[in-house]
Design a protein around this nucleic acid. Structure first.
Lengths: 143, 143
DNA sequence: CTATATCGTAACCACTATTATTACAAATTC
DNA sequence: GAATTTGTAATAATAGTGGTTACGATATAG
């Protein structure tokens, strides 16, 4: 259970909200579509709300709704809202500073990983929630 | 201790080998530069050897050495040799197939994450071990 | 005002990925 | 044959992750 699926679940949640814009969706109802626990959904909704992507309301007619148009929410917005951790990390222990390689490799590697992560994020920035909804509608129509 | 630093350690190891090409390096010696346990170094060397990037030899004059020129080893080669796991994963439980979103989002998300990962790998492919050695030499000269 | 429904979040558990460490057989050289 | 080194298995320690329970805060209905 250790692999990170927050991004997948977050996109799922936002896509559900984008296809039910008439009425706020409860975490319980969303959890039924994602097939997980409502608290997991609420945790991710909380992160998305902090990023300004969704709005939630408590109470008897409460629930969550998009705070922006689907076309104005990129997948990078979602990624940054929920996936703060780097995939590849630096050494656990700092390398030996008396070795020429050990003394200088960390900033070199950090810069390389930053470029690689940037490329990934730029690819995510090319797509928005409207595109995901359209892709799903296309698949439904093709059935 | 849960973050993945195999890529960082693998690049470190290969860079050490690239700067000491005259004689094979023992895992114990490399571990001194990386500041970790020799077995950790040997495990990563084993993965690098399976990818054809290094060669190791047992025995009293044993150790490891590059199997290719530094300029012929890209960082993507190293990444693929040691980092098999995806950073972002799909849902733990399959989504609800009775929800239109749940029924169709997985292939859409899989394709998006594949593109993002591809972009990252293409960025890593642009750099090779020779570039890393040059960057480190540049930093040493700038001291 | 009270009851009900819902969110927000803390606390805890189970599971997994990862690194560190010990141990030892296999291989190589002297 | 002794010494050294790799290769790998086994184990422990740590941390990230999602699932679950619990409960206070909040909003609406009546």
């Amino acid at each position: 259970m250790a692999r990170n699926c927050r991004f997948a679940v977050a996109v799922h949640i936002i896509t559900v909200l984008a296809t039910h814009r008439d009425t706020p969706a409860t975490s319980d109802w969303i959890a039924g579509s994602v097939n997980t626990n409502p608290v997991v959904v609420r945790r991710i909704l909380s992160a998305l709300a902090k990023a300004g992507l969704v709005q939630s309301q408590r109470g008897i007619a409460g629930g969550s709704a998009l705070a922006k148009e689907p076309g104005a929410i990129s997948l990078l917005d979602i990624y940054r809202a929920v996936d703060e951790q780097e995939a590849q990390a630096m050494h656990h222990q700092p390398p030996n500073p008396n070795c020429p390689v050990g003394a200088h490799i960390v900033p070199v590697l950090t810069e390389i990983l930053r470029c690689a992560e940037d490329a990934k994020q730029q690819e995510l920035a090319k797509r928005n929630v409207g595109d995901v909804v359209a892709a799903i509608r296309h698949r439904i129509a093709a059935e």
